[in-house]
């Protein structure tokens, strides 16, 4: 009896602690997922709201107070914007500029990144410093001479006027990210190829490039997003309506003023349309994008 009493008490106590712990765990969990839900809503909210607005009918768009939910659901804005030649054309322009810039930047950047990762040559640190310098460059610092130069060369309203700056400004990210991926390829494979009599260029093309394919792909996504979103040069070097890129088209979808009368149905539908490729890329490749983005920045 004397022995069992304390035991029983301690049993009851530990039971209490256990229940407390479970309660706290549940509470902790609950708060955590509540926070997550709030955070996800914070991130996606504006995009969801844009989607909702694009589905409102002309009559309900400008109601005060605004409707939280489209009633009736209307595809009118989507139809309008998809048949608007100026807009569909601008998407085509964006696609041409962004994919050309991505391909060129990848090719040029991959050669440079490989040299930095694997080849011994003088001035490597200088090359890195220059590349880093470009990454910090404000585009505005070179826009006036580029404008004069492109005017002289007749490149205004020409895709090259956007492809060239886009290649240049995506090169730093391209070189860093690829460099990180190239380093992860085991050196032994390259040495084996060398022993087998392959030249360095052959090694690069046949061995390194295929092995680095996932990294190259990740890099391509990063570059494409950057080029697709570019605005400063696109607004400056393109003036003919049929040459505008999607970002410039969206920015200029109205008269200059912020006041009422803005065609919000079309703007929101257009916004969702040009964002959709990015959202899909992000949803499908989120793990890789995060890996690519954070690869260099944190391992200092």
């Amino acid at each position: 009896m004397a022995m069992s009493q304390p035991r029983a008490r301690s049993g009851a106590q530990s039971g209490g602690i256990l229940r407390n712990k479970t309660a706290r765990l549940v509470l902790d969990r609950g708060l955590f997922y509540l926070f997550l839900a709030f955070f996800v809503l914070f991130c996606l909210g504006p995009f969801i709201w844009t989607l909702i607005t694009s589905l409102k009918s002309e009559g309900t768009l400008y109601l005060r107070p605004t409707l939280y939910w489209p009633d009736p659901i209307s595809l009118e804005s989507w139809r309008k914007v998809l048949t608007l030649e100026r807009f569909t054309r601008s998407i085509l322009n964006s696609a041409i500029v962004a994919s050309s810039a991505t391909l060129i930047s990848l090719t040029v950047g991959a050669l440079c990144a490989y040299a930095i990762a694997r080849v011994r040559f003088p001035g490597k640190n200088l090359v890195l410093a220059l590349v880093l310098g470009v990454a910090m460059f404000p585009g505005i610092a070179i826009i006036s001479p580029l404008y004069l130069q492109f005017s002289d060369w007749g490149l205004i309203n020409n895709y090259w006027a956007l492809i060239l700056p886009n290649v240049t400004f995506t090169l730093p990210v391209c070189i860093w990210t690829l460099n990180a991926f190239f380093r992860e390829i085991p050196l032994e494979l390259e040495e084996a190829a060398k022993v087998d009599g392959a030249t360095r260029l052959q090694t690069l093309v046949r061995i390194v490039a295929p092995l680095a394919a996932p990294g190259v792909f990740t890099t391509a996504i990063l570059l494409f997003i950057a080029a697709w979103n570019e605005f400063l040069f696109a607004r400056t070097f393109m003036s003919r309506p049929e040459m505008l890129t999607a970002t410039v088209a969206i920015a200029g979808f109205e008269g200059a003023d912020v006041a009422t009368g803005t065609p919000w149905g079309e703007i929101t539908a257009a916004s969702v349309i040009i964002t959709l490729p990015l959202v899909i890329l992000v949803l499908v490749f989120q793990r890789r994008i995060v890996a690519g983005l954070t690869a260099g920045a944190v391992k200092g």
Binding site: C43, L44, F47, W228, F231, I250, Q286
Partner: peptide, 22 residues
């Protein structure tokens, strides 16, 4: 969560500006 974190980052600034304007 990771994907939704990336949405504001990947979004075109012009589009983001339009969204917030609305």
């Amino acid at each position: 969560v990771r994907a939704s974190v990336l949405v504001p980052w990947a979004l075109t600034t012009v589009v983001a500006a339009r969204m917030w304007q609305l």
